[in-house]
Design a binder for these strands. Structure first.
Lengths: 355, 355
DNA sequence: GGCGCAAGTGTGAGCGCTCACACACCGACG
DNA sequence: CGTCGGTGTGTGAGCGCTCACACTTGCGCC
């Protein structure tokens, strides 16, 4: 005589387990298992009964037991550079959501520095956790190389890790963004465009340099050595002071919005108006970009979508090992024109007639 | 005759398991288990031998099996509001690091909206994953209430969730920050300070309002109704336009730096100089704050440390259930004075004698 | 009417560990 | 010199599931 409604629990730790559900529903535990994994071969009426029993007991399958018995953890490891940077942080959000939507759980690790050593250590920890796949977001270039060279026990996908080859089948091409930024400035009449680059240990930074250089060369404009920043407003300010001192500078493409912030302050302090004297363009479209003084022209990238697609590839790889030629995917950021860029105004030559 | 050096593997899925290590080391699996969990009662020489065997085989214990057998997942769930906001994001980093350092693994869930329903759903999912404790960062106030009311099967800690009571033993008092911000402005001679508040469904926003109001009342300064923003630069801009139109406004305290960004643009566009006509103070000290035009005076909070302390409390609660009176912890942010705040300058009265 | 066959259901074993013991072995004690 | 109590080690069982089967039914078929 089953005391229906009573919350019995057989499990050592109090929670109801599969046999409890089975007993309540009057079936074997195997049938319960079939229902949980919604496998075929269970009569609808039976399924309903099992479902009801599960609900009544508040039963939830033990992930540990499932994973032990099945050999599958249904967990994806995400390793990312944990920073204040808009790009990686946003990509992470997209990736996490996509993974979870696919029914996997996520183990995230945010590295303060995504170099070779920490990459390897992180992957090591992920492996120990028995993840079924690893997604690396924005590793430094040498870290990406190390990851690729390592024989991975699980599918590994590197997002924005550089090189032409790719681990898990996609290759995002993002030179287009920088190219468009420069094109925009050139179209505005600027003789050339200076570049405030990100740290070259990141592929995203290299990509921007390549796009910038290509656009310049295409247009036959002079190419000055890019200045080096570290993504921060601080570095944008420091290099901005250098740029501000050069009267020939009329347009600057910063590799991200944060550096553009610092750059604009340096320009402002030097008495050079934006966009009157110097046009500035950023990259990323951080939420504040539209509210800077002046509102910043920039490029918006769909990080969420990028993350989503990367996840799709990774999961495909997990679920159907083998297969899949690397598919090149072109990421074309949108140019958001605001007030920090304007027509080229030749500066009045000292000692000569203006204009 | 053991073929030492050979990578044998008994496990169904290829990886070496405990008995493999035991065989190689010439002990029983139980001894291997003792070594892994570094329990006492193993001779040093034996321990060494086991360790060597583990290394040779590249053995890593199966978390699923451990957790199934021990009933402990050694996993902490973190639920947070996943946004571009500096505070929660930074706190999350501190929390994650602290949890991992304590030898637990982390399951993070970033909610786009941390309201009642999503909070409950997230906790539900965490519970299904069998986490041993849950840490909620910056839930909306009603979500915090719901979490507290729910009978939690595991220790639950709410960070910045408001109310006076606390779930897991700490109570962070952060009214001091807002108080100091206002005090600073008052000391500069401003007759009063307007407040650009964050969304009141967040305790952090309410806290700032309380601190602001208290400081004003203490000083006997007039208290105007705070304006409502939503943490974004966008909303700061919108409300900033209102403020800019009021010639009596000489000092504004924004509940976060992002809103201050928008506010400053609105002021600028209205031709009101910062800090000449209006002083602005923010909150959080985002990395860009020092590079805005003008560099923003703000309050810096040690989010990392806050996270660390919260984790310590949670883990204490997990490891020694019961015990622990709520300990009030006072968070006193540092006032970072930059260029967006200045002495009060009475505006020239139209038609009357100046000053 | 006995056969095959599908659909639905149950049984045994085992995933890789930890727990609670049981068992050796050693020196010290009366 | 037998017994006690430690210290180190091994044994049995079982955690809550999934896997690979084996087994029932009911049905249409020759």
């Amino acid at each position: 005589m089953p005391e229906s409604g009573a919350r019995r629990a057989t499990g050592r730790h109090g929670a109801p387990v599969m046999v409890d559900v089975a007993a309540l529903a009057g079936v074997s535990y195997q049938t319960v298992s079939r229902v949980i994994n919604d496998q075929p071969g269970v009569r609808d009426s039976t399924r309903e009964r099992v479902l009801a029993a599960m609900r009544e007991l508040g039963y939830r399958p033990s992930p540990a037991a499932r994973s032990l018995a099945s050999g599958r953890s249904r967990m994806i490891g995400i390793v990312t550079i944990g920073s204040d940077l808009y790009g990686p942080a946003t990509t992470l959000r997209g990736v996490e959501t996509a993974v979870r939507d696919a029914g996997y759980s996520v183990s995230t690790e945010s590295l303060s520095r995504f170099d070779r050593a920490s990459a390897l250590a992180a992957v090591e920890r992920m492996t120990a956790q028995r993840v079924e796949g690893i997604l690396a977001i924005d590793p430094e270039v040498d870290a990406a190389t190390a990851l690729r060279e390592m024989s991975p026990t699980v599918p590994l996908m590197v997002l924005r890790g550089g090189l032409d080859a790719v681990t898990a089948g996609v290759q995002f091409d993002s030179t287009a963004g920088a190219h468009n930024a420069v094109r925009h400035l050139l179209d505005l009449g600027h003789p050339t465009v200076r570049h405030l680059a990100g740290p070259q240990r990141f592929e995203a930074a290299r990509t921007r340099v390549r796009g910038w250089r290509a656009a310049l060369e295409e247009a036959g404009a002079p190419v000055h050595e890019p200045l080096q920043g570290d993504w921060s407003a601080r570095s944008g300010y420091a290099t901005g002071q250098v740029l501000a001192a050069d009267p020939d500078v009329s347009a600057v493409f910063a590799a991200n919005d944060q550096m553009a912030v610092g750059l604009m302050l340096a320009l402002h302090e030097a008495g050079r108006a934006v966009p009157g004297d110097v046009s500035v363009i950023g990259f990323d479209d951080i939420p504040e970009a539209a509210y800077l003084i002046p509102p910043l022209t920039t490029l918006r990238q769909d990080f969420i979508d990028e993350g989503r697609r990367a996840v799709a590839m990774l999961l495909a790889q997990i679920e159907h090992p083998g297969a899949a030629e690397p598919i090149p995917v072109r990421m074309v950021p949108d140019l958001i024109v605001r007030s920090s860029t304007g027509r080229y105004m030749p500066r009045p030559t000292t000692g000569g007639p203006p204009r």
